[in-house]
Amino acid sequence: MNFSVTSYVTKSFSRVASRVGATLVLTAGLVAAGAGAAASNPTDVRYVSLGDSFTSGPSYDPFGGCPQLPYAWPKQFAAQWGLGGDWFDAACSGAVVDGRGTNTFGEQLGTARAALGPRTELVTIQFGGNETYGAAGRSAAWSMGLCIIDFVNGCNDPADPAAVRADAVTGAEMARRLTSGDSGDLIGEIRRAAPNARIALVGYPTILPPDSSVCAPVNGVEDPGFQPRAAYAHDVLQRIEGAQREAAGRLGLEFWSLKNATAGRDMCKPMGQRWITRVGDFHEELLPFHPTREGHAAQASALTSMRTG
């Protein structure tokens, strides 16, 4: 990678981080207010949400909490359902099923355990991107991100041996994580605590365009060919979707795919049409490669249709 490209990428991500930090300070009150039922830890509610940053929004709390954006899709989904405060959202940015440290799904379930009970009708789980697979040293998300900015080798195949191998992302492995991974038997615990609940794995929205490229603004100019060799990133995302679907089938869960509902709204569409942020989208309160405000709203509406359909 030459110096000018490296400098651009570094400065772009630094500006995004600064913007996100400032926004979180300015909107801390809104985030707390928007947490709704998640802040009150109710007992035996009708709906419980578990998830990662695509569920909570990629907010950050240096004190170890899990702030959630006030327009994150579970809040809009619960509002469309008319639940009032009869729901609980334990989703947390950076969450993993397999892995130690903070923001694990095991910790989320511990936080949500009182909210689960005989009245619980639905539990949604959105996960997969933060996991490491195989012998990889990095998560799928980081593997894709670093590969996309590898302009020397391209991103058709990752040159970094620490990257996740796409073929290691399987339904069998996801099912194992949900039942006997580092977070324990998540599905078994949910079923025991909420025996009448539907459990749905929620897929990710459409993030990349249908070809094998990735776009980005360069010096303020849209560059649709920012990374023309990005087959690996596309493959990993497709395999995560396929693995989620297969894991749901293996475990007797529902799988709610967002791909069709968000098709044509990927990060490479013009501003106003895209539902996924990217480097340089400073009008959003988010990090790149995550749903916009409109994206969260669209996901909530799509999932409402799946719940009632």
Rank of each mutant, 00 (worst) to 15 (best):
R176N: 08
G188V: 04
A200R: 11
A197W: 09
G128V: 07
D157T: 10
A140Y: 04
R177V: 01
E121V: 06
A200F: 13
C155N: 11
P205H: 07
L146R: 09
D167V: 14
P195S: 15
A172G: 05
N196P: 02
G145Y: 03
G145I: 06
A193H: 05
R138V: 13
L178W: 08
D167F: 11
I125H: 05
D185R: 05
M144I: 14
P161W: 05
S180Q: 12
A163L: 03
P205K: 07
A193V: 00
T132A: 15
A175L: 05
I148V: 14
A136M: 13
G137I: 06
A197P: 15
I199C: 11
P195G: 14
I190A: 02
D160L: 05
I149P: 00
R176K: 14
P161G: 08
E189Y: 01
D157W: 07
D182V: 11
D182K: 06
G154H: 04
G188I: 01
R165G: 10
I190D: 01
G129D: 04
E173W: 03
G171P: 08
G181H: 02
E173M: 01
P161H: 13
T170K: 09
V202C: 15
C147N: 07
L146E: 10
D157S: 14
I148C: 00
S139H: 11
L178K: 08
D157L: 10
G134Y: 06
E189N: 13
S183D: 03
I125L: 15
V202N: 04
I148W: 00
I187N: 02
S143T: 13
A141Y: 06
A163K: 05
G129P: 05
L146T: 06
I148R: 06
N196A: 14
P158Q: 09
D185Q: 14
R177D: 02
A163C: 10
N156M: 02
P158F: 04
A141G: 01
N196K: 12
S180E: 13
G203E: 07
Q126V: 01
T179V: 01
S143K: 05
P205F: 13
F127R: 00
G134A: 03
G134S: 09
R192G: 10
Q126G: 10
A135R: 14
W142K: 10
E173K: 02
A159F: 02
V169H: 15
N153M: 12
G171F: 03
P158Y: 12
G181W: 02
L146G: 07
G128P: 03
D182Q: 08
M174H: 02
N153Q: 12
G129H: 03
G188F: 04
R165E: 11
R138C: 03
G171I: 10
S180P: 00
T124K: 12
F151Y: 12
L201Q: 05
G154Q: 03
A168H: 15
C155R: 02
M174S: 03
R165A: 11
N153L: 08
T132W: 00
F127T: 14
V123E: 10
G128I: 06
D167P: 03
Y204M: 12
F127L: 11
I125V: 15
D160M: 03
E189M: 04
Y204N: 10
I125T: 08
R165D: 15
C155L: 07
F127G: 04
G203S: 09
G188C: 12
A140W: 01
G128L: 10
D160W: 01
N153H: 15
P195C: 14
A136F: 07
I125C: 07
G154E: 06
P158M: 04
D150F: 03
V202W: 02
E121W: 00
G137Y: 13
